[in-house]
Write a protein that binds this DNA or RNA. Structure first.
Lengths: 188, 188
DNA sequence: TTTCTATTTAGATGATTATCTAAATAGAAG
DNA sequence: CTTCTATTTAGATAATCATCTAAATAGAAA
């Protein structure tokens, strides 16, 4: 299961159970299977309301139903809960919930951290973060224009002393290209 | 913890985590402690919004905070989650969720089960249920009027063959009283 | 002291959702 | 076939809640 799916499953699970009526239904079905009418009487709700809640719980896979004459008998799939409780709350699984921060926000944060007063505090060692920083760096150069290695180095040094690493990384990540005459230009 | 408290704790827990922003916060704090501002940037929300969510999570005991200068650093109390996941989902604990059915609904259900076509299918052996049935039975008699034991028995037999038990239970539970002349009358 | 910065509190607004009634459905009973 | 019963679907309403802006707070920096 992908991280995003895991996140959404979990979110749906909490949403479904984060409701007084549905949590009561869960408790009732943990004791015994029930028809819609029985649940409605026990909860003091109308049938359509209960039906609506049951649909949400069934959608999640928490309960299932069988038909008996005019009645629909709902029952709890206890397996579902057992799997979830064992699996969900481990530190490692929780940690992945956060990696949903894919968008600009995460990149902004990385940049805010590494770029201080227009200079690079550090060159990130993690590739993903480094790429963000390099893309920002690359954007500081004119698109289309060609720079000699000497000029490039000088300009890069304004951002970080280790201009050689910056230059190498930029080529490695295909943000810049070079020709035989030691000229560099933006690829993105 | 009482059953009702258990129910409410669990309900609050699901409500708090059944929200996209708060579930993301949980994930982020599972990786590292964070200030309000950091969380706001990562989630692309305003500080007051994040602050509001953090308050809900703290109220629940899921996270805690320490002050560092102007910042407030929030961190996950992993113990809380571990306790909950181990404890919550056991069949026995789930089963108690339902006993919240205290009101009229439960009594109605008991009556619906025991009273069939105006007669008692059975005399409940559990006192709590028997009381419900006896109160209904008692209501079938005229308030204020006095009944001789012979008449009472005859009328009770219309509900259940074991009229003696019914009569005894009614006196025992102070629903009816008797005098020396074998006369009975309603007390409630 | 005054100013600045991070956060919380207060209050408003819009979106979501729990619930209801009325109507549709479908199977059972006659 | 018609009627009855249990349930679901559709649609309306009202309550809850997530989010925002503006203002208050409180500690840090100057």
């Amino acid at each position: 299961m992908s991280e995003e799916q895991h996140f959404n499953t979990l979110l749906q699970f909490f949403k479904v159970l984060g409701n007084e009526s549905r949590l009561k239904i869960l408790g009732l079905l943990a004791n015994d299977e029930r028809t819609v009418g029985e649940l409605a009487a026990l909860l003091e709700l109308r049938e359509p309301t209960v039906s609506h809640h049951l649909a949400a719980m069934k959608e999640l896979g928490l309960i299932d139903v069988r038909v008996e004459g005019n009645n629909r008998v709902y029952w709890l799939k206890t397996q579902f809960l057992e799997n979830l409780s064992r699996d969900i709350f481990s530190q490692s699984n929780l940690a992945t919930l956060a990696t949903d921060e894919t968008g600009d926000a995460w990149e902004d944060k990385v940049l805010r951290y590494y770029v201080v007063d227009g200079r690079l505090k550090d060159i990130p060692s993690k590739h993903k973060k480094r790429l963000v920083v390099l893309q920002w760096l690359c954007a500081q150069f004119e698109p289309g224009r060609r720079y000699h290695e000497l000029e490039l180095n000088e300009r890069l040094r304004a951002y970080h002393p280790d201009c050689a690493s910056l230059r190498r990384y930029m080529v490695e990540d295909r943000l810049m290209a070079r020709d035989n005459a030691n000229m560099y230009w933006r690829l993105v």
